[in-house]
Design a protein around this nucleic acid. Sequence first.
DNA 1: GTCTTACTTGACTGCACGGTCCAGAACGCA
DNA 2: TGCGTTCTGGACCGTGCAGTCAAGTAAGAC
Lengths: 193, 193
Amino acid sequence: MGRPCGFDQDEALERALGVFWRLGYEGASLDDLCQAMGIGRQSLYNAYGDKRTLFLRCLRRYTERNEVALREHLGQVRPVQRAFAALFEQALGQPDERKRMGCFSINTGMELAPRDVEVGDLIARGQRMLEDVFTEALEAGAGRAELAPGSDCRALGRFLVGTLLGVTVLLKSDPRSPAPRAMVDVALQALAR
Amino acid sequence: MGRPCGFDQDEALERALGVFWRLGYEGASLDDLCQAMGIGRQSLYNAYGDKRTLFLRCLRRYTERNEVALREHLGQVRPVQRAFAALFEQALGQPDERKRMGCFSINTGMELAPRDVEVGDLIARGQRMLEDVFTEALEAGAGRAELAPGSDCRALGRFLVGTLLGVTVLLKSDPRSPAPRAMVDVALQALAR
DNA sequence: GTCTTACTTGACTGCACGGTCCAGAACGCA
DNA sequence: TGCGTTCTGGACCGTGCAGTCAAGTAAGAC
């Protein structure tokens, strides 16, 4: 009833995510968002509430999409060492502009987690999710005898989460640095059987 | 000649660093800075130039101070494994409030490196410096036969830089997370002989 | 076809920010 | 003591921001 919404809310949310990812929460102005989303200010407020609410929806969207993509990738590739190697390789092989963007979740954690408990909680949940996905992939690998017997998959999973974080941050602040490459090479040896 | 500066510029710079560290570059207002530094706006501009110039001086001060402290620590403690273990242990043992602050250099790299080439360059230099300090400590350890023969100290140094980054970022976005502890434990095994 | 309801557009508001100006104060020097 | 120079404090300016308002518009309901 009444006039229907004149734009694709899902598509617009995706555009908003792109803006927040590139510019951060504070750095993205409503004008930036409206322009990228192709809608006016009031439409934005009608559809999503205020800026912060829109941001939280972007963050949830990003986390969920990442989870399914990761689960699919890690569930398919074998052995588990190759799955993680491919994951890191993909991060290392991105174009510089993309490296500069880093990971939206990490960016957000750095910018907002210390002063916004709700964001902090979402980020912490996301990290635990990542840890679980990694750990489960490792346990599956261990079940296929791809890892050394007695490997602590939870500890290895946490280690790999931290490694991915480190690599991403290194690449973001200096996309040409040789450090992340070396980091990955050394880190993957922890998975040798 | 003329009226002398009425405050300790070194001390005031330290206060400014504290504000930038806690709030970030954009997050720190001139009012925040003036209040923490105990001086007026005009005094700040007389002594340091504009906000960005003051920030760059803070960043340089931070990097230099970190370098000497690290060199001293890593040069003293032996074997080299214990030196790095102590370094990570110190990061893990900080109070939550301090964990939330993270590392000023990483914070800055995340916030400004993608859009400020001068900052980006300072950060990249800082990372290379850290890498060199770590590598030299490892080489000294290798010279004392503390590492496995044939160890690639440069690669290990880069790996440890990335590990420290990962741990710091994990602690910042979630000080109670068990992940950084596990990450350190696994990472230090790369130094086993 | 008209009426109700919701969406759209663009102007507007109040605020916080970085930076500047200016009048006055404090010190070194002669 | 008087002068020149520099520092100090507070008012001020222009800008960019998130969020609101009101008038106009388009679609579905009947």
